[in-house]
Design a binder for these strands. Structure first.
Length: 270
DNA sequence: GTCCAGGCTCTTT
DNA sequence: AAAGAGCATGGA
């Protein structure tokens, strides 16, 4: 299917640090989501997805008017104006809560390259085979029950480092019904955060990523090392960054944060 | 060799 | 409540 949208850029989405299963394929990407692997590529005035499933419209959050959001933020200050212009094709993908939770537990004190490689290894070793595209095999992200017998050492072997035990514990908690990452979708914002913060390896920042990317709670404003640099260097905020961000960037703090993250990384603030 | 990466847990003030 | 040490791993 062809999707035309003025705020939809595959490369920007793929490199914006929210999804780790977008693999380069020629001029486009193979995207693994929704138990499928499909090709996406830019065509004039839109993107071409090699699949007809309406899942992708939802995944890409296609009904949301990102331009209207940009138009608001770009008036607030010069940096936001540049950031929204630079990343005007970014959208916040609606991703699977379990996959996002695992991904961002692994993301702690880590870099995007290593996160990507760990997620790839976990999928190839424990996920269902999906299909082969241009000679490359793609695997679904495993379900919790497919990980229930994986040892801490085996997670370590996927390149998780010391985070191996956090993922191991998450799987135990899920299998023992101490947490249901799908059922908690219905909780209010505060209750959802509390439920996630009880899990090992999830602190304030990782929690905000999970509620933003996995549960579409747009007030979540993850403050990582890059965003800290932006808040200090650009906005002069050294303390109580969370309070400032929550107020200044509302009501779509998470979306604003994504523009700041993408642009802030590109200009390499010192 | 040191520093850093989408930080967290655990211990000590 | 707040601050500090320790943590796996690979790339710059």
């Amino acid at each position: 299917m062809i999707i035309k949208n003025s705020n939809l850029n595959l490369e920007q989405i793929a490199t914006s640090g929210q999804a780790f299963r977008w693999y380069k394929n020629g001029e486009g990407y193979v995207v693994v989501a929704g138990h499928k692997a499909v090709k996406m590529k830019e065509v004039n005035g839109g993107i071409d997805i090699d699949d007809e499933d309406d899942f992708w419209l939802d995944y890409l959050d296609i009904t949301r008017d990102y331009q209207a959001i940009i138009d608001q933020y770009k008036l607030k200050d010069e940096f936001l104006e540049k950031a929204t212009a630079y990343g005007d094709g970014i959208r916040i993908l609606k991703q699977d809560p379990f996959e996002i939770t695992v991904t961002f537990i692994i993301s702690a004190n880590n870099n995007i390259t290593r996160i990507t490689s760990a997620i790839k290894m976990i999928s190839e070793r424990y996920g269902d085979y999906l299909k082969t595209i241009d000679g490359v095999k793609y695997y679904d992200f495993p379900r919790p029950d497919q990980l229930k017998d994986v040892s801490i050492e085996e997670f370590r072997a996927c390149g998780l480092g010391y985070r191996d035990k956090y993922l191991f514990q998450l799987i135990q908690d899920i299998m023992q019904n101490k947490i249901d990452l799908y059922a908690i979708k219905n909780l209010g914002d505060d209750e959802l955060k509390k439920a996630l913060l009880r899990l090992k390896g999830i602190g304030e920042k990782v929690c905000n990523c999970i509620i933003l990317f996995g549960y579409q709670r747009y007030e979540g404003f993850p403050i990582d090392t890059w965003i800290k640099k932006v808040l200090v260097d650009v906005y002069g905020i050294k303390t109580n960054q969370e309070d400032f961000a929550k107020d200044y960037f509302k009501p779509y703090g998470g979306i604003a944060q994504q523009y700041l993250f993408y642009y802030g990384r590109s200009v390499k603030l010192t």
